[in-house]
Amino acid sequence: MRDLRLKDVSFSYPGGFLAVDHINMEIKAGDNVAIVGQNGAGKTTTVKMMNGLLRPTGGDVLIGDKNTKDYTTAQISRIVGYVFQNPDDQIFHATVESEVRFGPKTLKLSKEEEDKRVEEALALTGMDKFKDENPLNLPLSTRKFVTIAAVVAMGTEILIFDEPTAGQDMAGNKRLSEILKLLHAQGKTVITISHDMEFVAANFEKVIVMAKKKIVRTGTPREIFWDLETLEKAMLKQPYVSRVLGALHIDGDIISIEDAVEGILNR
């Protein structure tokens, strides 16, 4: 298992537009990390440099001790899986099952191992019941889970989810939590971009805050969601329960409903 390091990384588009400005980041093997920040803060550009979809225009991205410059994009894709923000950017097959099987097939596994990967990924994401359907006939929020299954089936040690909560209902959010928990328990490194502060507070151990193409702060959810200055800089808000507790002057840097109940009752 390899750590992921970004050293003084920048990215400018060919027209000169700077999307990421000299950032440093260290993600240890097995970490589960959320990246938060406004639209345009540089989150997606950053994670695309982690899996070789974009190559930094300055600095180095290292997977373990090896620079991504020394990998082909195909090689990186076997180490770092990436679930696109828009599922339609990565769906190409006529059935859910063939979509999920496509990646593992390229790995030249034994037939048994390939079947096992596909079945497990379909079951984990709840897509087993749609396996013979055309993904494009499924609603957007379900298509997202098809793409998650496809990436999970690759068995990469690092997985990146780009706004998986967008458009999900309560059941979808719950399923996402379960998927993240299981991947974490398997020792995978999970990196997730999300705009949903409640989801971040409940599901991650580490939060990276980005604003204006830079990293503003890295910390635990408790540290981040009670650092009002950082939140303001990044135009983010505290989770609802934290806002209520702040107004009631109850300390303890509480970010979950369960802790809020105890905090209020013990006042």
């Binding site: 209902d169 309560m170 059941a171 409640e198 989770p239 609802y240 329960v241 209520v244 409903i257 369960e258 809020a260 109940v261 209020i264 009752l265």
Partner: peptide, 20 residues
Amino acid sequence: KGASLPQVAVLGSMLKERGL
């Protein structure tokens, strides 16, 4: 029934259950 409710409503109902 699969609907979500506001965070503060869930908090309030838990507090009420605990006797506040």
